[in-house]
């Protein structure tokens, strides 16, 4: 089940990535390789296997509703390409 270039274009659009021709070619090959690798699983007969919701058999892990200290704002913003010291700044988001 090879990945098509259209699949790559669709995924890059959803991820808001703009790929050059060469990148599209490379991604189609590399992502296709990954998908094919995982696709080997479908060779197995899973007719009588119950679907798993999670890899480990554990349920109901909770924490109490307790407030903990948040990051100082300057630390939270430290990795952002653009800030005004209060907010993250991003290219204009207009409408919805």
């Amino acid at each position: 089940m090879a990945l098509s270039r259209d699949d790559v274009l669709k995924v890059s659009l959803l991820g808001r990535l703009s790929l050059t021709e060469a990148e599209q070619q490379r991604m189609t090959e590399q992502l296709g390789g990954i998908v094919d690798y995982v696709a080997q699983l479908s060779e197995l007969d899973t007719k009588d296997v119950e679907p798993m919701a999670h890899a480990i058999e554990m349920t109901n892990v909770f924490r109490d509703d307790a407030v903990r200290e948040s990051l100082p704002r300057q630390d939270a913003l430290a990795n952002a390409p653009h800030t005004d010291g209060e907010f993250y700044l991003v290219p204009a988001v207009l409408g919805e």
Partner: peptide
């Protein structure tokens, strides 16, 4: 109406100064 967020301990108080109720989990 919880005091903290769904997956981390940051406060949910309305009206706090921007980006003062965040941590590595929620960002």
């Amino acid at each position: 109406l919880t005091a903290s967020k769904l997956f981390c301990g940051c406060a949910t108080k309305f009206g706090a100064p921007p980006n003062t109720q965040t941590c590595p989990i929620c960002i």
